[in-house]
């Protein structure tokens, strides 16, 4: 056992992490009949925000209206609770392993500002792509693979293939 477990450098074995994550995903399917997700919670927050600011606009829109129903607020949604759990779980692990620290992480070759601009653009692209593909790495790729759905496997291949290609173009951001 390493003695410096709490200095932020310790990570659990990746295969152990994978099995634990797989058991969480399996429990999700076994108990609730659905997999994990992340981008859907952001979508539901956007839908709720737009609907409360401009209700008629949201109801007339071809996209927001898909996720609005009369009796149930989109915020009262499974994924919103699940993502609140993700933040709590990440926070607990960060405390246990000593990683709680405000910082911007990037290659020493670039500035904080450059990293933050790239992060913002990356987030925007990920947001758009996740709506087109009806889910992100969690909801479409990981959960889809567990049930061997075609959409899961194809989306996973597209995400990782494209990320591999573009990461070499944007290499300076990272190494």
């Amino acid at each position: 056992m390493k003695m410096n477990k709490r200095d932020g450098t310790f990570y659990i074995n990746p295969y152990l992490g994978g099995i634990l994550l797989g058991l969480v995903l399996f429990a999700s399917y076994y108990i609730t009949g659905r997999g994990l997700g992340a981008s859907g919670a952001v979508k539901n927050t956007v839908v709720t925000a737009v609907h409360s600011v401009a209700p008629t606009h949201a109801e007339k829109s071809g996209y927001y209206s898909k996720f609005l129903s009369d009796d149930d607020s989109p915020m009262n949604n499974w994924l919103v609770f699940e993502v609140m759990g993700v933040v709590i779980g990440g926070f607990l692990s960060g405390i246990i392993y000593g990683r709680m620290k405000l910082k911007v992480e990037h290659s020493p070759k670039i500035t904080d500002n450059k990293r933050l601009i790239a992060a913002a653009v990356g987030g925007i692209l990920f947001g758009i792509g996740s709506q087109l593909a009806r889910g992100c790495t969690s909801g479409a790729a990981l959960s889809g693979m567990a049930v061997l759905s075609a959409s899961g496997i194809i989306t996973m291949l597209a995400i990782f293939g494209s990320a591999y290609f573009f990461s070499w173009i944007f290499k300076k951001l990272w190494i």
């Binding site: 790239a118 992060a119 653009v121 990356g122 987030g123 925007i124 692209l125 990920f126 947001g127 758009i128 792509g129 996740s130 087109l132 593909a133 992100c136 790495t137 597209a158 995400i159 990782f160 293939g161 494209s162 990320a163 591999y164 290609f165 573009f166 990461s167 173009i169 944007f170 951001l173």
Partner: peptide, 9 residues
């Protein structure tokens, strides 16, 4: 598109 966002973000 998500892959490009991944590489940037």
């Amino acid at each position: 598109v998500m892959g490009a966002g991944f590489a940037l973000g």
